[in-house]
Simulated scan of single mutants.
Amino acid sequence: MGVTIKDIARKLGVSTTTVSLVLNNKPSRISPETRQAVLRAAAELNYHPNQIAVSMVTRRTGTIGLLLPDISNLYFSSLAKVIESECSALGYNVLYGNTNDSVENDFKYLELFLLGRAVDAVILTPSYQLGEEERVRFRSLVESSGIPVVTVDRRMQQMEVPCVCVDQELGGYLATKHLLSLGHRRIGCITAQPNVSGSAERLRGYRRALEEAGVSFDQALVVAGNYHVESGIQALPILLGQGVTAIFAANDMMAIGVLRECRRFHLRVPEDLSVVGFDDIFLAEFLEPPLTTVYQPLDDIGREAVRQVAEMLHGETGGERIISFKPSLRIRGSTMRWAGAQETAGK
């Protein structure tokens, strides 16, 4: 059993009330000499407060809940690392939940975190399955608990919570504009489910770039994936059947699926097919060829999410607002000028 305040009181020959008042820094008439003696004895005995007892008194756990949809996705695992580091710097532990993009898992963890008051605040990327009914349920949970909530990467419509993300539409625009600048006109796009805010916005950026270049949008060149490698693999033959010369995948994991499947089709990247991803996960530059991708400033996103939580815990109101960072394009070896561009131009 660990050292208790009774042990400290016994060592000094004072009351447990005196020790408690000193260790909790409560106003009292205790002399400076006694106060120093208590603190010195606590250090000598290696005393650590019982966190459960402390939380019952302070209504704080010193813990932030973090819910992410897929820790196997290197974007989210890297984001988790940043958030945990920032929380640690502020003296908070992180209680983590992987929801597997399941709305029921979202609520299983939220009920534990919010109704069970297991955490002081929650940072989450909501499941893509969150519809209108689930948003009402989510709103009720947040309001009844009074616990601060911040979303990251994916925005929740009509929710009174801050969202920290990147300008998703600009990212889709930059990726597609790059491929257009290389002469590509049949550009495939692999998205996620249309009800995922980030995916819909990246698709809007794709469409905007096409429109600016005078290229008609073709729904047949858009394939819905799910942000996993497998959906990139499955999308490639569909898009090849539509005669694409380039593909914009809405995240790097799906782009990796495309690169892997290209080998099975004996396609050379970028000579036969140019590929652009989104996220700039740390593996992107080590792929063969290195992946051209849209960079998200993960450190800034994670740091800002924790800052928003800290401000709300110190009494500043949350409310629905979007804190958006600018993406940029990292050009690497998976894209090149389309060989047929000059032939088309010469006709």
Rank of each mutant, 00 (worst) to 15 (best):
F278L: 07
T335Y: 03
I238N: 00
F282I: 13
V136M: 10
T18G: 00
R29G: 04
V82G: 10
V22G: 09
R35F: 02
Y96N: 03
V119R: 09
R29I: 03
V276E: 01
P327S: 08
T99E: 04
T18D: 00
I30W: 03
R204Q: 15
L291R: 12
P290M: 08
S181Q: 13
K347P: 00
G340T: 11
E169G: 15
E211W: 00
S127I: 08
R264Q: 08
E201S: 11
I323A: 07
L79T: 09
H48E: 09
L236D: 01
K11G: 00
P32S: 15
L210M: 14
F217G: 02
G277I: 08
D272K: 09
T58I: 03
E33L: 13
N93S: 15
H228K: 14
L79V: 11
E343D: 09
G13P: 03
L210T: 05
I238W: 00
D299V: 13
E311S: 15
T293W: 05
A53Y: 01
Q242R: 15
V166S: 13
I71W: 03
Q158F: 15
R135V: 13
Q36T: 13
M156Q: 14
L273P: 01
L67H: 02
Y206R: 05
E143F: 07
R260E: 06
R260V: 00
P327Q: 06
N105S: 08
Y206H: 10
H184A: 11
L291I: 13
Y47F: 12
T344R: 15
L239A: 06
L68G: 01
T317H: 13
A42S: 12
L90R: 15
E33M: 11
G257K: 05
Y295P: 00
V150I: 14
A9N: 05
L45T: 01
Q129Y: 11
D279I: 11
I233G: 01
P148F: 11
T58M: 06
S144D: 14
R202T: 07
